[in-house]
Design a binder for these strands. Structure first.
Length: 360
DNA sequence: AGCGGAAGAG
DNA sequence: CTCTTCCGCT
């Protein structure tokens, strides 16, 4: 389409590989973000981040949820330029665009680390997934029960896949972490820990199964996880410190204490690992974080639904609204440590945040 | 390297 | 509005 700039190697809007975890057409449409009509830079970054073939160019930084490193700035810029048909694009310009995300709280710079930025997923999700449908698995994806793992966040028309991938990413990571049981402090505790350098040993000896990404969703649950884990950020990003007051768990649960070192919390609401009771109370999630006053009103809790619950979009609800980036939470300000990020771990099956529309 | 103002394009 | 392009400053 368009100038034909985006036809080589770079994931293109609507292109084939986008079939499950990536960003399909909707991601490039107006609904994906108020006022936007074509792919946005952060979408693109996420795209790259998801594809293994771009791992050498840009990749999630382990240790920090949502943090990624642009290993080859020029290449990323070129890719971006190609996508946008801006052959003159360069990292300087791209980074300027990235900087504009600071104020919007979509991204922020990881100081001290070159070419390292961090996504504020809570913001992205809020902004991009006001409408969605969820089919949560009956059992906690988080802790084992991989066999039951049938992640199925079905985007309802508009957005959903980003969240989908975000959720999966979270789960995958949990699995990953659970498997590794890395005995070390909170990821964020060691800011500068370059860790293992550029070649993240994240999955250990796991075979990178998901060359095709989404395809894995059709494979064994285990592979889904592993594959996703390799593409996903270490975990979801920091949550606003005040998100707990909200009661609309949307984000994927955080690994329970024990599984992920450093996340232990004395007052965790999380039940033990394994399949938790069908219903248990859990705190809200950052779903609303960043939402403007109005937006919050559109969301309310609903009784827990049985497995296979579906969160349907509000027919009349506009894709935008209440998304004023300027306001919202102060995640950056508080910059909670990992341990603080997961005070509790609501399980996906308990998803109940929903929009008013939901049929009673 | 990274930041952010300014102006302008679409 | 979301960048793109320039650019001076740190």
């Amino acid at each position: 389409m368009h100038c034909g700039c985006g036809a080589q190697g770079v994931p293109v809007a609507g292109s084939s590989w986008i079939s499950g975890l990536a960003f399909p057409d909707w991601a490039y449409k107006a609904e994906s973000s108020p006022g936007s009509r074509q792919i946005q830079l952060w979408h693109f970054i996420l795209e790259l981040l998801q594809k293994e073939e771009f791992r050498h160019v840009i990749a999630w930084q382990q240790g920090e949820y949502g943090e990624f490193v642009i290993k080859d700035p020029d290449e990323v810029a070129r890719l971006w330029g190609r996508r946008k048909c801006k052959p003159q694009m360069n990292y300087d310009k791209l980074s300027r665009a990235l900087r504009y995300y600071y104020n919007k709280r979509i991204l922020h710079k990881t100081k001290g680390k070159r070419f390292t930025y961090k996504f504020n997923f809570s913001k992205l999700i809020v902004v991009n997934y006001p409408l969605w449908e969820v089919r949560a698995p009956p059992c906690p994806l988080l802790l084992g029960a991989p066999a039951l793992f049938r992640p199925a966040l079905v985007p309802m028309g508009t957005h959903g896949e980003l969240l989908h991938s975000a959720l999966l990413a979270r789960w995958a990571t949990v699995e990953q972490l659970a498997g590794q049981r890395t005995p070390r402090g909170p990821p964020e505790a060691s800011e500068d820990k370059k860790g293992s350098g550029s070649s993240a040993p994240r999955l250990g000896s796991l075979p990178a199964p998901c060359q095709l990404g989404p395809c894995c969703l059709l494979g064994s649950p285990r592979e889904e996880l592993l594959g996703l884990a390799s593409l996903a950020p270490p975990l979801l990003p920091s949550l606003p410190s005040d998100w707990t007051r909200l009661s609309g768990p949307f984000l994927p649960p955080v690994p329970p204490e024990g599984l992920i070192p450093g996340t232990s919390k004395p007052d965790t609401l999380l039940p033990g690992p394994g399949c938790p009771p069908a219903t248990h109370h859990f705190p809200g999630l950052p779903l609303l974080a960043g939402l403007g006053q109005g937006a919050g009103e559109r969301i309310r809790l609903l009784p827990l639904r049985p497995p296979g619950l579906e969160v349907k979009p509000y027919p009349m609800m506009g894709a935008k609204g209440g998304l004023d980036p300027r306001e919202g939470f102060s995640s950056e300000i508080h910059r909670p440590k990992v341990g603080d990020e997961s005070p509790m771990s609501p399980h996906l099956e308990n998803f109940k945040a929903v929009w008013p529309l939901d049929p009673p």
